[in-house]
Design a protein around this nucleic acid. Structure first.
Length: 825
RNA sequence: GCGAAAGUGGCGGAACUGGUAUACGCGCUAGACUUAGGAUCUAGUCCCGAGAGAUCGGGUUGGGGGUUCGAGUCCCCCCUUUCGCACCA
């Protein structure tokens, strides 16, 4: 065991000290100035792999320690996103109560964080499954209900007829129940929604100001919101005495609408097919299509299928009667659930028209080519000029024409301009036990009655039965369900739906700031001082749902006057996954138990220490990219730390005086600069590389006795300081052994001196016609004349200039000179 | 299909605003110390060619073209991979 440091003893010592002294604890009431707040809200899954290799926590901790050493007031809180489906599954499968399961897991995960040496401010710890937390979910829900931001409507859910329960999308595998294999059907249930659509434009506009967010995430959110401008147009259905409204982004193609297609869910469908001779067959088809799970219906490679309703509508532009069809490719909850089909100018409509033998009519005609609508193979998109649409004949296929058409449609009273979104309102109801109970009561005489604020929280009963069948366990708990109406005091029934856990994670960053406040959700004054969050570190998997919901709730709180900002997270960093080779598949994949390609952090920490794991995790590659774990490569980090440790014991070998310390001193300053810049750019891998280089240079200096002992010691101390965010345990130990009494975390980040970075003489690269030919030693600030003179003396340059003369010279001071030649006259 | 990112040694990767491509690490090779080592240390390691040798010449950042004194970096075309969305009218 020679030459290796005792990482276990050192880790135990410092982890204990950090915990005892509660070094991460922050007083939130304190002072003014710039604050930094980092964020984490992991789901305690009981599967260690959920903590994974802790790349995000290690990144966060390194950043936190760096900020602390820079004298920044930083808060690094930790809480638990504790509600969720896996806890309930564990209860069903293993008979453990979700609450016990969750708190057991939290204990294990806390232990893991300790082993990594991560400093969290545990005085701010929260868990979303506690009544102290979720009562504010309920409180906010009631405020949103008052403002009409929460509402109830029917919506389809995945229903397993055998288990008699609602399934989440993940529980539906190939259209069947994950547990019993029974085909899943769609069922309409009354569900609670948040009106996020009303905020769509603000959420969209806000993205432009989020400079600290990855472009990728912003694009994903923009696509998810999916705003499109167009028009809604009314088509009369004379036989039924009704009108059908369609939404289209291409109202300019109205003249080419040769049929209409309704979603099978469209409210008019049953009326339209009522008189049809094959009514029963049509109804069966509608039923079948509606029961296809949404994931499947919208899934890849879905074949278009449709039926003629037999009814007709009138195209308002042409006055022609066009058939009304219904088809699976029209979605019930986008636009109006009905479209005008323009096969000549829409790929999907053309495919359907060809399949069903429906007519095609062109609005836009390509100018230099004759097109026969009967044989048109591809829709005409973005080209051609209008023909056969009298008011606009000759107009080009361009946005300007669309605007003219909309104005015309409005003038004629056919319809009006409209914006449509891909985003749907946020469905927050879950028919499950392990979540925040939705605080409303159903009364036979008063209807839906909100639970009064003074009766909050509506607590989740502990005593429930988990069968995995017959719906929500909550609804079978009589004590919970049976209550009295707050208004009329008559017997009433509680809502048994619970809230989506994204509600919990939409405002937890504010609760960190008032974790024990029993009077209010959070303290607005503290919130406005500490929030928005300065740096959020998390995986891309939250790019749309969580991060969009949190932005929405932040705006709601803003509109309620509770916070002064609309964006909750100023800077967002997405770390990449850690992957590993899997024996099972023979490929490199994301680590997971089922793939059998996991590497246990505990084993590694046992063998080589937490600092090794941390340094390797940071060194493995750019943190935003995914990285493949390599057992072999870890030893590089281990060797590095051991070499550092041994160097401490050899520092005294450096001579008391040396001819010149400038080289080592320059390296020291250069490294401070490089590491500082690297950390600011989240480039931890290059920071570690720079520190390895400094260690190499220092080892050599000591070995060869090229620098004074004082300079070597100073350099060593700087190295240890700069390395502290990455390898906190060893560095604290080395620092203490160097005789310092204040801890590294209390020291201030080393500063570099610009003037110390400069060299007097530099080795200048000499190029002839852009090719490297030689190097010359010159004064750093030498002018072109001097350099040119020095360069022309070089035999190598002479050789390459043979028969040529210098036409021009380009000097980049301190770096290179390029001689451009031409043939001698 | 649409959108985005990325292609650099045997491998992970470095190169901030165009200026010595391959830093740092892994692996590999040789040697040292060892009873032994998968411990540690030293030297070497992009490719091709010449040379006993230090060295010298040529080539190289997915492919092709362009701008520039100079391109991994900027512009255009193509190829490949990964990710996101995917009948959103």
């Amino acid at each position: 065991m020679s030459g290796q440091f005792d990482h276990k003893a050192i880790e135990a010592k410092w982890q204990d000290r950090w915990e005892r002294q509660r070094v991460a604890e922050v007083d939130l009431r304190h002072g003014a100035g710039k604050y930094y707040m980092l964020m984490m809200f992991p789901y305690p899954s009981g599967d260690r792999l959920h903590v994974g290799h802790g790349r995000n926590y290690i990144l966060g901790d390194a950043l936190y320690r760096y900020l602390r050493m820079n004298g920044k007031r930083a808060l690094n809180p930790m809480g638990w996103d504790a509600f969720g489906l896996p806890a309930e599954n564990a209860a069903i499968q293993r008979g453990i109560h979700p609450r016990d399961w969750t708190f057991d897991n939290i204990k294990v995960m806390k232990q893991q964080f300790r082993r990594w040496g991560i400093l969290f401010d545990w005085s701010k710890e929260i868990a979303s499954c506690t009544p102290e937390y979720y009562r504010w979910n309920q409180w906010l829900f009631l405020r949103m209900l008052e403002k009409g931001l929460a509402y109830k409507k029917k919506a389809p859910v995945n229903w397993c007829p055998s288990c008699q329960t609602v399934l989440a999308n993940e529980q539906v595998v190939d259209g069947a129940c994950e547990r019993c294999g029974t085909p899943v059907v769609q069922r309409d249930l009354e569900q609670w929604f948040f009106r996020i659509l009303g905020y769509a434009d603000r959420l969209l506009a806000g993205l432009d100001g989020l400079e600290g967010w990855p472009e990728k995430v912003k694009i994903m959110q923009r696509n998810w919101i999916g705003r499109s401008e167009g028009a809604e147009i009314q088509f009369a259905v004379p036989a039924a005495g009704e009108t059908v409204t369609v939404f289209t982004t291409r109202p300019d193609t109205l003249h080419g609408a040769t049929f209409m297609v309704l979603a099978p869910e469209h409210p008019l469908v049953s009326k339209l097919i009522a008189g049809h001779p094959e009514r029963e067959a049509l109804e069966a088809w509608v039923e079948k299509t509606r029961n296809t799970p949404r994931i499947q219906r919208e899934g890849e490679g879905m074949v278009k299928e449709g039926r003629d309703t037999g009814a007709v509508a009138v195209n308002p532009a042409t006055g022609e009667e066009i058939p009304i069809w219904m088809a699976n490719y029209v979605l019930p909850d986008y636009g109006t659930g009905a479209i005008m089909a323009v096969p000549a100018h829409d790929e999907r409509d053309l495919a359907f028209a060809r399949q069903e033998g429906l007519p095609v009519r062109l609005v836009y005609h390509p100018e230099d080519e004759a097109v026969d609508p009967a044989t048109l193979a591809e829709p005409i998109l973005g080209r051609g000029v209008v023909r056969n649409a009298p008011p606009f004949d000759g107009e080009p296929n361009a946005p300007e024409t669309i605007r003219k058409f909309i104005a015309w449609i409005e003038e004629k009273g056919f319809g009006r301009a409209r914006v449509s979104y891909r985003l749907r309102d946020w469905l927050i109801s879950r028919q499950r036990y392990w979540g925040t109970p939705i605080p409303v009561i159903y009364c036979e005489s008063c209807g839906i009655v909100p639970v009064p604020d003074d009766q909050l929280p509506v607590e989740l009963p502990y005593d429930v039965e988990f069968t995995g069948r017959e719906g929500n366990p909550l609804s079978r708990n009589k004590q919970f369900v049976e209550t009295t109406c707050p208004k009329c005091k008559k017997p009433a029934r509680r809502e048994t739906d619970t809230m989506d856990t994204f509600m919990d994670s939409s405002w937890y960053y504010l609760r960190y700031l008032s974790p024990r406040d029993g009077q209010r959700m959070f303290d607005p004054e503290v919130a406005n001082r500490w929030a928005p969050v300065d740096q959020y570190i998390g995986g891309v998997e939250h790019a749309i749902l969580h991060l969009l919901y949190a932005r929405f709730i932040c705006r709601v709180l803003h509109d309620f006057g509770m916070v002064g900002f609309e964006e909750p997270f100023a800077n967002l960093f997405n770390q990449g996954m850690i992957t590993h080779y899997s024996e099972q598949s023979g490929r490199v994949e994301k680590m997971s138990k089922s793939r059998g390609n996991t590497v246990s952090p505990d084993e590694l920490i046992e063998a080589m220490g937490a600092d090794t794991e941390r340094v390797y995790t940071l060194f493995i590659g750019p943190p935003e990219k995914e990285a493949e774990w390599s057992e072999e490569a870890v030893s590089g980090a281990y060797r590095f730390l051991n070499r550092l440790w041994r160097l401490a014991e050899r520092l005294h070998e450096a001579p008391p005086t040396a001819p010149s310390d400038t080289d080592l001193e320059r390296e020291r300053h250069a490294t401070i600069q490089r590491v500082t810049h690297s950390l600011q750019r989240f480039s931890f891998n290059t920071a570690v590389a720079a520190l390895m280089e400094l260690l190499n240079a220092l080892s050599r200096a000591v070995e060869e006795k090229r620098a004074s002992r004082l300079q070597c010691e100073t350099t060593f101390d700087t190295l240890v300081q700069l390395l502290h965010p990455m390898a906190p345990h060893v560095t604290e130990e080395l620092w203490e052994r160097r005789g310092y009494t204040e801890t590294l975390l209390e020291t201030s980040w080393p500063e570099y001196d610009e003037s110390k970075l400069r060299r007097e003489r530099v080795s200048l690269v000499v190029q002839v016609d852009g090719k490297l030919r030689d190097r010359v030693e010159v004064d750093a600030d030498a002018d072109e004349k001097t350099v040119r003179a020095a360069v022309l003396d070089s035999p190598k340059v002479q050789e390459h200039l043979a028969g040529r003369e210098v036409a021009k010279a380009v000097l980049v001071p301190g770096r290179l000179i390029n001689l451009v030649t031409r043939r001698s006259a």
